[in-house]
Structures are given as structure tokens and as C-alpha cells.
Write a protein that binds this DNA or RNA. Structure first.
Lengths: 234, 234
DNA sequence: ACCTGAACACCGTTCAAGT
DNA sequence: ACCTGAACACCGTTCAAGT
């Protein structure tokens, strides 16, 4: 069986020259994400993009002015994936929790892409949807105006920072060839253990490693603080 | 007046060949941090290190096996700077807040270095001190064993992720030559504003940009959650 | 865990030339 | 916002040779 669906995204290599308009921003972004997902943090190069798309490496410059710009487009694509199928839930807290877990899992599924993009403001078409979705939940909770934006900033920045750092750790561990769960382990063997009594006393516990459990606790802490700070009207 | 203090860290360039043992891990790490602090996120190269230290670029390989290893050493150096002069305060909450603000300010002062290192577990000599300091405060609050480590993980991971993302945004803004405070501004001009009612209603508020105020709110949310979850004994 | 210089296989970006 | 190939100024890393 031929994979017919693959044809439009992966042009035949044997073709000598690509027709005009074969490449698009969308095709390049999808190829970039595919390349980053292979696991090598530094795999996204113009040469690799050219190979993936059966095009000359420099053809990308017709569509993006730099690698940085391609990465920012990947950032918006990750937001698109993360929001896919999202609908507000009955309670504003459930909505915010759902959005947080979506970001976490999207970043965990695409660690190298997330590592290079989680700190970017894309100002792209999907980012604006995410901002609107979070502000909607914050409004439903009872905040308005500047205070609503402040709550939005605290929440979304928290989620992106925590999910992004986790992705960076995953990507770095993969690059180091390490067991991809082991980066959470902090096993210290100081020369003078008596200088670090608390570290020594918790040597075994510091080997525990459930990133999502920690993330979940951090999200609940923020949601509880928001609930406690709800404006009186609600 | 000659800057005598500079001599040991910056060898004379005219010297043809460096004597054996001139280079040390410490000198290389200090040079690396100086280079990163110049503002260019990608400035840390072996060539640049060689120039900074008056040595051959490849001499670094006698002391570190890769650029990645140098960056991990820079990560530990940032922790050293951050802990400099730290003493536990009377209340465990004040201690944790102090440690959080130290990390934030250190990362803000060295954005490019922080961007490349905030997600690393260094297992180095200063990281173990930081872990011990946080565990000490968590113990004083009343936690022990596995639960103490979980509180430590929630808190330190929160602080590193938030301070690290801020540093990455600062570094990226500097690289883009942008006004270094403007990266916090999210000004959307969607084609169909009616599709994003909450974004449209908060157009002006989304220009507000005080990263530290947001960080402070996030830290207080976590401290409040910890206080609420204190074990009964305390 | 010594320092240097040559060498190798890359990499981002520019630009003149091809369709 | 067309696609290609040559060219330029880098970059990380290896390794034989120098002190």
C-alpha cells in the first residue's frame, strides 16, 4: 500500500527541480517539527530541512528570513497542537487545569521543539487563541480589566515556564543519551557529607522522579491562590 | 591607574605561548560568563574563549570535554553567585523567598548564561549547597522525608523555571536588538477581532509588563499553598 | 586534564544566476 | 516571499606535534 497522504508533505527526491510555489510556510514548519522530533536538539539546520523537503537548503529563505523565524513559527504550531479540540469546561478551574495539562503534554511530546520555543511570544494566529481561552476562563472566575490580565499572566507564564523547563530537561537528557527519566535524579556524593546534613538525610528521596506529579502540585497551588483571591463580586 | 586586579584573570595577549597550567577550570568558567554577559546569546565559542584567555581555542579541551560541559560549569557558577552571603532568616518562608529572589536577580543579571543553563542539574559543589539550604527551610517548616523532598522539588523547580524563562526572554530580546523590556508586551491585531473578544477587550492591559511583579505573585501563591499544607505537628 | 596549529565536517546567510 | 549553487565567514571537535 502506498502512503498517498505522504505525497504532498514529502515531495519525491528524484525530481530535479521543485516547481514554483511547491514550498510553503506550512510545509516548512511541519518539516521542522518532524526533524526536531527525531530527538537531536541541534538537528534543525537548513541542510536538514532541504533534505526533508527535497529542496535546496537556501530555498527556505524565500519563506523565512532566518532560522529564528522558523522556530517562532514552530512555537505557534505547538500552540495549535496544544489547543486542538479544546472547549471550555463548566468550571473555570477545570478549564485552566485542562489548558495547563495540554501544554505540558504537548511540550513533553515535542521536547526539542519546546526547548527552543517555550520562551517566545509568537504573536501568531494560534497564540492569540490561547490568550483568549485563558482570559475567558479568568473572566468567568470573576476578574476584569487589569486584574484579569495579571491573573492571566501569572497562570500562563507559570504553565509555559514549568512545561518548558521539563521539555528542556527531556531534550538535554536525550542529547546526552541518558535514560530519559533519570534527569530528575539528584544523587549527591559531597566530599564532606556532614557539611550538607539535609542533602545527606534525604539521599534516597532525592532519587524520586515524577515530573508530572510535581507540575500538578504547582498548578494546584496557583489555582488555590487564584480561588482565594477571587474578587468579592463572585 | 593600572587595573592590577585584572592581570591574573586576563593574561597578556602578546605572550607567544601560555605556560603549562596557566589555564584552569575556574579561569575558563569566569571567561565564559564574561563572554555570555556581553549580550550575544551565541557568543560562547571556543575561538572567543581562546581570545578572552589569550590561549589557543583548542586548549579548553584539556579542561573540559565539550562546550556543553563548560556550560554546566557556568550553571554551577551562577548558583555560587546566587548563594553568596545567604544566611537562613528567622522564618522559613522568608528564607525561601530570599532564595527565590536571589535566583531571579542572578538570572536577570546574566540572562544569556541563565538561558543556556537553568534547566541543568549540575551535581556540582554549589548546587548541593542550594539544595541543602532549601531542604533546611523546608525542614524548619515541619516536613520530613519524602514529603520534604516533594516540597523542595515543587519550590525549587518553580523558581528555576520562572527565573529561567524570564532570562531566556531577556536574552532573546537582546539578540533581536529589541527594547529589553518590551518582550512582555502582547499586542495582538487579529484579522477578525470579534473572534477573540477577551483579547480585544484587554488590548491595553496586555501591554503591561512587570515581570518581577508576576514572579513575586507566583512565589507567594506557592508559599501560601505550602503554609496551608503544613503537617499537623507544626 | 599541557598548549598549539592544521585539518575535517559542518553551519547560517548572501547573492548572482537559472526556471 | 520562486528555486539553485557557489561562496564566505564561521563553528565544534580531533589529533599529531611542540614545549
Amino acid at each position: 500500500m502506498e502512503e498517498l497522504a505522504e505525497a504532498p508533505t514529502r515531495p519525491h527526491r528524484k525530481q530535479k527541480r521543485l516547481g514554483r510555489g511547491t514550498l510553503t510556510k506550512e510545509l516548512i514548519v511541519e518539516a521542522a517539527l518532524r526533524i526536531l522530533d527525531e530527538g537531536n536538539v541541534n538537528a534543525l539546520t537548513f541542510a536538514r530541512l532541504g533534505k526533508e523537503l527535497g529542496a535546496s537548503p537556501t530555498a527556505m529563505y524565500r519563506h523565512f528570513s532566518s532560522r529564528d523565524e522558523i522556530e517562532t513559527a514552530v512555537a505557534d504550531e505547538l500552540i495549535r497542537i496544544s489547543l486542538d479540540g479544546y472547549e471550555p469546561l463548566e468550571s473555570w478551574m477545570d478549564s485552566l487545569r485542562d489548558l495547563a495539562y495540554r501544554a505540558w503534554h504537548t511540550f513533553s511530546d515535542h521536547p526539542a521543539a519546546a526547548m527552543h520555543t517555550f520562551y517566545r511570544v509568537t504573536l501568531g494566529p494560534h497564540e492569540v487563541r490561547a490568550v483568549d481561552a485563558i482570559l475567558e476562563a479568568v473572566h468567568r472566575a470573576g476578574w476584569q480589566g487589569r486584574e484579569a490580565v495579571f491573573q492571566y499572566q501569572m497562570y500562563s507564564n507559570l504553565v509555559l515556564a514549568l512545561s518548558g523547563r521539563n521539555a528542556a530537561m527531556l531534550a538535554a537528557a536525550a542529547a546526552a543519551g541518558a535514560d530519559s527519566g533519570n534527569f530528575w535524579v539528584q544523587e549527591y556524593r559531597p566530599a564532606r557529607p556532614q557539611d550538607f546534613p539535609y542533602v545527606s538525610a534525604h539521599h534516597d528521596e532525592l532519587r524520586i522522579k515524577d515530573g508530572f506529579e510535581v507540575f500538578s502540585g504547582q498548578v494546584e497551588a496557583m489555582l488555590a491562590a487564584m480561588k482565594a483571591a477571587l474578587p468579592a463580586a463572585s
